[in-house]
């Protein structure tokens, strides 16, 4: 599979322009991200790779508007972004599910702020439950689910709001090795499904192989403060095999940038 979405418009969805982010801590000001610039175009799958402490999660929160940059601008479809971006949705490492709500209720939660139409909400919940393979689990509680099923709920909740930008913060890092293989493949299946609204995806990960397996382009961040030290296009057909010679070359190249 090549990227099913690219070469359609090449329209920039989100752009970080000379973004820095400082936090005030008791010991003084700390710069977490410094002079970050990159953009993601419509239909692109971008991975952001860096060691822990590189400010990757902060970067995602700047993109969805939960945080504002200290310096620089975040442009969404060419306009400066102020406040939360309701066209984006987030998938979290630890799933972010409410334990007292069922699967269906957790998925519906994301729709609450967007529509009051109960029938429409129900229709969307059912639609995305089916997309991620959760039919039959509607009334289950998170405690009854395996990690893989929990993250399917997290993904369905994000997809249900039909975001034009899907942000993922280490979405596979809490899963066992086999489950994460399965969910990575299913994420690509969902992404390549042309019925879906979401075309553009940005994923943060500390695992280089995971980024190369999935993404069209990888932004590499250095540590403390996070700075862009590389922006590499991954020119390999999918599915990508880790033992492939060119795959290994990409691993080496990114590794040397991080070292």
């Amino acid at each position: 599979m090549t990227n099913p979405h690219l070469n359609q418009t090449e329209e920039t969805i989100i752009e970080m322009k000379n973004v820095s982010k400082n936090f005030m801590l008791p010991q003084g000001q700390v710069t977490v991200l410094e002079n970050i610039s990159f953009k993601a175009v419509e239909g692109e799958f971008v991975a952001i790779v860096g060691p822990s402490g590189a400010g990757k999660s902060t970067l995602l929160r700047l993109m969805n508007g939960l945080l504002a940059p200290s310096v620089g601008n975040v442009l969404y479809q060419g306009k400066e972004q102020h406040g939360i971006n309701f066209e984006s949705a987030m998938v979290f490492q630890n799933f972010g599910l409410l334990p007292w709500l069922t699967v269906a209720q957790n998925i519906e939660l994301g729709l609450e702020a967007r529509t009051k139409d109960a029938a429409l909400k129900k229709e969307k919940v059912n639609r995305y439950i089916t997309k991620v393979g959760l039919d039959g689990y509607e009334e289950a509680y998170p405690r009854e689910l395996s990690g893989g099923m929990k993250q399917r709920v997290g993904l369905a909740r994000a997809l249900a709001i039909e975001p034009s930008l899907l942000l993922m913060d280490e979405p596979f890092s809490s899963l066992d090795v086999l489950t994460s293989i399965n969910l990575r493949n299913e994420l690509l299946d969902i992404w390549s499904d042309r019925d879906n609204v979401v075309n553009t995806m940005i994923m943060v990960t500390h695992i280089i192989e995971e980024a190369i397996e999935l993404a069209d382009r990888i932004i590499i961040l250095s540590n403390r403060p996070g700075k862009v030290v590389g922006d590499i296009k991954i020119d390999l057909p999918r599915p990508r095999q880790k033992r492939d010679k060119r795959f290994i070359e990409y691993v080496d190249r990114i590794f040397s940038l991080l070292a």
Binding site: G148, V177, L178, T179, I181, L183, P239
Partner: peptide
């Protein structure tokens, strides 16, 4: 064993 683990195993082997 969860269904996702089983599918992940088969996907790994297919590669």
């Amino acid at each position: 064993i969860g269904i996702s683990q089983i599918l992940g195993l088969v996907e790994l082997l297919i590669g």
